[in-house]
């Protein structure tokens, strides 16, 4: 177990450094890292600190958030097909962002878009909690999430449909693909407090998620307070996914595929999968964000497009492998 932790942590560190060293500005590795740490005048410290550092930090934060919340969601619903977007937070955050672009708020004010997305996420999570009810099973949570996601998707389509400005429509479509390009350190500052809150809520759920392996009845008899756990899970997921969507758009498949890949390596224990999946998510998003810069540097390939392109076949492979193991 220790070996997996060290391997994943080393991968995160290596990819983080690689992410700092790759970009359109030709900066040597030693020169770049020295400028990052020591600072100084000129363009090199500016590029390192204001462009590349936020991008690498956001990749780690978003990957960690999506991997962690994906593992928590799968553990709670006891279903390997669950993902953080299931509770409708990413959909409603996207709707908020799309409204900000459509109304011109995002153009008028740099933080208009992420704050509108956070407002959308908040509205979405409150609706989900109200719909799913204070008690009730995991089933009502899934149904409420699907209802909110569909509603948000329909309203997003409506905005696109009625958009008289083709540039705004274009911007909306590209934003929804998800990207970490041209984010600033203030985006990090905006997302980090929410994500920290989400991590603090989600990580201690491991013990209850382990007990849930035996079903809701057995877990309740082992002292797990299921309604409280569900509320913590929903709020924690909303914090991390809302913040991730607000600063980077929709990045799919990370929260679905990463827990699935790592599950056999942690003996399928939901509590161990939480941190493993968080680190694994950071590895996947860092690697994908490096790939979009290396494969087509001049075409601005979107991160969310790449994670889906890599994630879907990987998922198919996993399904095929699972199918072979069935009797």
């Amino acid at each position: 177990m220790m070996r997996l932790f060290v391997t994943l942590a080393a991968l995160v560190a290596a990819l983080f450094i690689a992410s700092l060293l790759v970009g359109p500005a030709r900066i040597g590795a030693v020169e770049g890292l020295r400028a990052l740490v020591m600072g100084g005048d000129g363009p090199v410290p500016l590029v390192m600190r204001e462009i590349r550092l936020p991008r690498a930090l956001l990749a780690v934060m978003i990957g960690l958030s999506l991997g962690l919340s994906g593992a928590a969601m799968q553990g709670y619903l006891r279903n390997p097909l669950a993902e953080p977007g299931l509770i409708g937070v990413s959909g409603s955050a996207a709707l908020g962002a799309v409204l900000a672009i459509h109304t011109g708020l995002s153009a008028a004010w740099a933080f208009g878009l992420p704050l509108a997305a956070l407002a959308g996420a908040l509205a979405g999570v409150m609706l989900v909690i109200a719909l799913a009810g204070p008690r009730g099973s995991s089933l009502t949570l899934i149904l409420a999430g699907i209802a909110i996601s569909s509603m948000a998707a329909a309203l997003t389509s409506l905005v696109l449909n009625l958009s008289s400005n083709p540039f705004a429509a274009n911007e909306i479509v590209f934003w929804m693909m998800g990207s970490l390009a041209d984010r600033s350190i203030s985006h990090v500052g905006l997302a980090l407090p929410l994500m920290l809150a989400g991590w603090v809520l989600l990580l201690p759920l491991g013990r209850g998620l382990d007990a849930l392996t035996l079903g809701e009845d057995a877990a309740a008899s082992m002292g797990v307070r299921l309604s409280r756990m569900r509320l913590v899970l929903v709020i924690g997921t909303a914090c991390v996914v809302g913040a991730a969507t607000a600063v980077a758009g929709a990045i799919g498949f990370v929260g679905l595929v990463v827990p699935h890949i790592l599950r056999p390596l942690v003996g399928a224990r939901p509590s161990r999968l939480l941190w493993a999946s968080g680190l694994g998510g950071a590895v996947m998003v860092l690697a994908a964000d490096l790939a979009v810069r290396l494969i087509l540097p001049e075409r601005d390939l979107k991160l969310g497009v790449l994670t889906a392109l890599v994630g879907a076949p990987l998922f198919l492979h996993l399904i095929y492998k699972t199918r072979r193991e069935l009797p």
Partner: peptide
């Protein structure tokens, strides 16, 4: 004070027998 074994034999994840039995120690 009390352990409960429900009728539904739920085992959600492919954990080892030992890990599953060790869940009894969670409380």
């Amino acid at each position: 004070l009390v352990a409960w074994m429900p009728q539904a034999r739920d085992i959600a994840w492919p954990v080892s027998v030992e890990a599953l039995v060790a869940l009894g120690r969670v409380p």
